[in-house]
Amino acid sequence: MSIPIDLLLNAIVAGLLLGGFYAAVTVGVSISFGMLDVVNIAHPAFIILGSYIAYIINATFGIDPILAALIVLPAFYVLGQAVYQIFYWSFEKRGEEALRGLAFFFGLLFITEVMLILVFGVDYRYVHALYIGPTWRIGFIDLPLRMLVPCVVSILLVVALQMFLSRTFVGRAIMAVAQDQQALRLLSVDPIRIKRIAFGVSIATAALAGAFLIIIQPVEPSIGREYIGRIFAICVLGGMGSLPGTVIAAVLLGIIESLTATFYGPSWAPAVAFGFLLVTLAVRPAGILGR
């Protein structure tokens, strides 16, 4: 079978753009699951919540969805802190996070989805912005702005987070809490406070990821489930909590999914992420840049 070279290149470029978006979707879980060991399977629900908030603000005030996400960022940060505090009091403190903590997040995922269905129904919602629609063409390569803008902002987000984690005191404390809570206590830093901040940051990224999602495709409440497999596949393959690893894994998955969709049909794409996850778990559970 000979593959037309322009189709192949376009599929790869589309995959790169998709990968950039996936990095934004996953970076929150890389912090919560990878660094804090909090298995937040409700993360996709927060992303969808972000999508709907971007949609409301966009529909009412006509504000750009990404700007809207930046406006509600602090609210998501506080929401994340609150969720972590409940999680800590109810499960982590009692050492019950394995079974009941998972059930708790699963319940959150489910409640958010059902609430969104009750309020908005199951219709697809979409946003308006200047960059949704036009496409740049470089040679025979298409660069739809609808994909390019989220990808660029998403890379900026990851770079900013990486700077925060490696340059500031709180950021370094977050990295440290993953390794040794006791040592952090000796520095008279409260590990719970650090974890609360980190979880807040993790949920705050979901607001932006949600805005990207609704720019890229129309959104309905149950769409988040498709992202669970992807998010955790990328997080594990990226090496659990390594942001550069997360970006590499996200781009890899984006390209593989894009190639699958181009050459086998889009209805197979959801299965790719899972295959990816299983192969990763079976072959290299430490991930690409894992410790």
């Binding site: 298995v39 399977i41 489930r225 498709e226 669970i228 497999g229 955790f232 596949a233 959801p270 299965a271 992420a273 899972f274 996850l277 299983l278 778990l281």
Partner: peptide, 8 residues
């Protein structure tokens, strides 16, 4: 996590 993705 794997069982979660299995359904999809």
């Amino acid at each position: 996590i794997a069982t979660l993705a299995l359904a999809v």
